[in-house]
C-alpha cells in the first residue's frame, strides 16, 4: 500500500493503481494519519460543470478590456516617441551651441611638447627672436629672414 501511495504522490500511478489504492484504503481497518490523508485526497469530488458556462456571454466586456489595454499601449508608445524626439532635439541644440563657442586656442610645440600656455609661448618666441636678432647682421626683417632661411 505504501508503495502505491508513493507512486500516487509522485504522479506516476495509473488510474487502475489509484482505484486499487482507494479500495485498499477503504477496506483497511486501521490507517495511519498519513494514509487517511491520501484516502481523503482520493475521495475528492471531480469538477462539476456549472450551468452558466455555456450560456453567459462576456464578449462585450472582453472587447472593452482589450480596447482599453491597446489604448494604454498606444498611449505609452506615444509618450516614448515624444520623449525620444525631445532627447534628439536637446542633443542637436547642445551640439549647435557648443560648435559656436569660440575655440581660440593657440597650440605651440616647444621642444616636442604641445603647450597652450600663452605666456610661455610668447616668452619662448621672444627668446627665439632675440637669438635670431643676435645672430643677424642686419636689422631689417627681410634681412633677418634671409639669414635664417639661407644660412
Amino acid at each position: 500500500m505504501n508503495k502505491l501511495i508513493d507512486k500516487y504522490l509522485s504522479g506516476s500511478s495509473t488510474r487502475e493503481e489509484e482505484q486499487a489504492l482507494r479500495r485498499m484504503l477503504d477496506d483497511a481497518v486501521l490507517l495511519t494519519p498519513e494514509q487517511r490523508i491520501v484516502q481523503a485526497m482520493l475521495q475528492a469530488e471531480p469538477m462539476q460543470a456549472e450551468p452558466q458556462w455555456l450560456t453567459e456571454d462576456d464578449s462585450d466586456e472582453y472587447d472593452r478590456l482589450v480596447a482599453v489595454r491597446y489604448s494604454r499601449v498606444r498611449l505609452l508608445w506615444r509618450w516614448v516617441s515624444v520623449a525620444a524626439v525631445v532627447c534628439v532635439a536637446v542633443g542637436i541644440a547642445i551640439a549647435l551651441f557648443t560648435s559656436h563657442e569660440p575655440t581660440n586656442c593657440t597650440v605651440a610645440c616647444i621642444y616636442g611638447q604641445e603647450t597652450t600656455d600663452e605666456a610661455l609661448v610668447l616668452s619662448m618666441m621672444e627668446g627665439t627672436m632675440q637669438s635670431v636678432l643676435a645672430c643677424s647682421s642686419t636689422e631689417s626683417l627681410e634681412g633677418q629672414l634671409t639669414d635664417i632661411l639661407n644660412p
Binding site: L54, D57, E61
Partner: peptide, 9 residues
C-alpha cells in the same frame, strides 16, 4: 465565447 468568458473571469 467560452474562451472570452474565461479571460474576463
Amino acid at each position: 465565447r467560452v474562451a472570452r468568458n474565461v479571460c474576463v473571469s
